[in-house]
C-alpha cells in the first residue's frame, strides 16, 4: 500500500481529471466558473500536500498564489462579468454531450500514451500523474473547441493553465518561482484583456456567440 500522502495526491489527480470531464459536460456557464474554482481548490490541496511531503518551500508560495488567484479572484471576476453581461447558459455545444465525452475518453488514452516516455524519465514520486496533467490540458482544449460562447472558452483557457501547472508540479515539483509568477501575471492580464474584449464583442454583435465573428472574414 502506498503512503497516505501519496494516496491523497493520487486522489487529487483523479479529482482533477473528473473535474475536467465535468466541465466538458456542463452546459451552464456559471457552473463552469464554479467548477473552475473547485479545480483551483483541488490544485491548491495537491500543491500543499506535495509541499508537505517534499519539504519544498516554494510550493507553499505557489499554493498561496493559486488560492488567491484561481480560487478567489479569477472566479469572482468571471462571475461579475457574467452578471454584467447577463449570460447564464451556453447554447447547445457543437457536439452532443455523450459524443464529447467519448472523444474525451479517447483523448485521455492518447495522453496516457504520450506521458509514458516522460514518466519513465521523471524521477519524482508523483510522476504517474503526468498523464492526468496532459489529459487536463487536452480536455480543456477540447472544451474550448466545442463551445460557442466566449466566456466558456476563457474558462477552458484557464483550466488548461491549471493542467500545465499540475504537470510541472508532478514532473519536477513545480516550475521555478519566477516562471510561476510570470505565468500567474500573464493569466491575470489575459483575463482582464479578454473581459474588455467581451464588452467590445457584445457591443458590436449584441451577443457573445462566437460564430458572429465568422462574419468578419473577408468574402472573396
Amino acid at each position: 500500500m502506498l503512503p497516505w500522502g501519496q494516496q491523497l495526491l493520487d486522489m487529487c489527480a483523479a479529482l482533477l481529471l473528473l473535474l475536467s470531464f465535468a466541465m466538458l459536460s456542463q452546459r451552464r456557464i456559471v457552473t463552469l466558473v464554479n467548477l473552475y474554482a473547485v479545480q483551483g481548490a483541488v490544485l491548491t490541496a495537491a500543491t500543499l500536500l506535495l509541499a508537505w511531503r517534499t519539504g519544498e518551500r516554494h510550493l507553499y508560495l505557489s499554493a498561496a498564489l493559486t488560492i488567491v488567484l484561481k480560487v478567489t479572484f479569477l472566479p469572482w471576476l468571471l462571475r461579475r462579468l457574467l452578471r454584467r453581461l447577463d449570460i447564464y447558459r451556453d447554447s447547445e455545444p457543437r457536439l452532443n454531450v455523450t459524443g464529447t465525452m467519448l472523444v474525451g475518453l479517447l483523448i485521455v488514452v492518447f495522453a496516457f500514451a504520450l506521458a509514458q516516455p516522460i514518466t519513465r524519465l521523471a524521477s519524482t514520486s508523483t510522476r504517474s500523474a503526468i498523464g492526468i496533467a496532459i489529459s487536463v490540458v487536452l480536455l480543456a482544449f477540447l472544451m474550448m473547441i466545442t463551445r460557442r460562447k466566449a466566456v466558456a472558452q476563457v474558462v477552458g483557457f484557464l483550466s488548461m493553465e491549471n493542467g500545465v501547472f499540475f504537470g510541472a508540479m508532478s514532473a519536477s515539483y513545480g516550475m521555478p518561482m519566477v516562471v510561476e509568477l510570470g505565468v500567474a501575471l500573464d493569466v491575470l492580464i489575459a483575463v482582464l484583456v479578454l473581459g474588455v474584449f467581451f464588452f467590445q464583442i457584445r457591443e458590436q454583435f449584441d451577443s457573445l456567440d462566437l460564430h458572429h465573428l465568422e462574419s468578419l472574414k473577408e468574402h472573396d
Binding site: 488514452v109 492518447f110 496516457f112 500514451a113 509514458q116
Partner: peptide
C-alpha cells in the same frame, strides 16, 4: 503495449 491495454477494457 501501452495504449492498447487502456483501450481494451473499453
Amino acid at each position: 503495449h501501452a495504449p492498447v491495454n487502456l483501450l481494451l477494457p473499453m
